[in-house]
Design a protein around this nucleic acid. Sequence first.
DNA 1: TCTGGGGTCCTAGGACCC
DNA 2: TCTGGGGTCCTAGGACCC
Length: 438
Amino acid sequence: MFYALVDCDNCYVSCERVFNPSLEGKAVVVLSNNDGCVVARSPEAKALGVSEGLPFFQLAERFPGQEIHALSSNYTLYGDMSRRVMGILRDAVPDLFVYSIDEAFLTLPESPCAPADYKAWGEALAAKVRRWTGMPVSIGIARTKTLAKVASKYAKRYPGYRKCCVIQTDEQRQKALSLFPVGDVWGIGRRHAARLAAAGVHTALDFTRQSAATVRRTMAVTGLRTWRELCGQDCISLEQLPLKQTICTSRSFPRMLTSRDDLAVAVAGFAARCAQKLRRQRSMAQMVTVFMATNPFREELDQSSLSRTVYLPAPAQSDTEIVHAAHQSMDLCLDVAARNALPQWKRAGVVVSGIVPDSEIQTSFLDIPPALKQKFQRLSAVADGINLRHGDEALQLAAALRPQDPATGKALTFRNSILHAHRSPFYTTDIRDIIQVE
DNA sequence: TCTGGGGTCCTAGGACCC
DNA sequence: TCTGGGGTCCTAGGACCC
């Protein structure tokens, strides 16, 4: 059995370059929400030494005189480009697992292409994705998913591989691992890498030469799984992922919030989004948690971090029920906070948990009356239908709207209050933004 | 002035039960 | 005077991923 890992090169930057080719060859970064920090970098930006997570406001200070193009994130565009790439991959193999917005694992069938042909097959697939979507992808092929990840890094780093690297023989495996820093291995993070370095383990090959008992003792079963995978034993399974066990929606605020009303608008928006995600995976939640925190970087201000959980009388998935519970949780937090002066909140979020499939719900006499419950369900279903056709923001709860934006006089959602000062157009999803060729 | 937003899994320790 | 042992469940915290 062989796996192929297909990974988009610098995904967000590449999406931007497809529609703005003048960015090719230049240092480009993409920023997080509110233009907070760097989340994606072009190779040129990496070469300059721009690190991931660098706060945007430090970019100019750290790199004076350098031309670095900074773009706000445009997740609508990246999500759409991702769907196009995954569609091509889905046509190429019977078994595809989409691991993230920019990565997918393919299980390679024995036919029509034997292992000897994998290299040519991978090169052709990468070329096809590039030609059809404009996205550059790198492909790694090996007997385990962790080794396929290693191979894809080589395919990405060295143009000589022509976008596809195959680790097939044991000799190739040892050679690849001997040149691979252990901290770059999938599943080994900074903490473990530092500890391993102190023990004289620097490359992935060094790591495989530790005894299984040592790895089990110092890195637990997850570390042992990574060790086995690097040794060539296929043991990480990604098959049918069950329902998500927790669903979270949270954001930092463009400015700090101190009033209950402002917080309630934001929390309602987060809760409604959680409810929508619940319905999308056909599930219900039994608990709703709200958390809020002050800005840890403003050390001179009072710091506070609170969270409270409310148990629902019965599993729920409607906007109405989830938002109501979230407001209860929020008020429990504020009861605690209000004993002192209210802090300045910089970030908040809603987590729904205790998730069960919506097909297996038992009725409970503790729940709201069945007729009312059905009404809420129908209302959410109608809203989902409208939002599917007209975009996520077309119809939403009044609770998630600020009465009025003083500047424009218009009602304002939390989401469109997020800053995106340098966002590119919605080239592929908004008719008004389609590129015109003259 | 300005510092992201999701998730997963594992483990240890305490509460509780019989 | 002498004061068990085994199991489950829950939670918090740590580590990881993209």
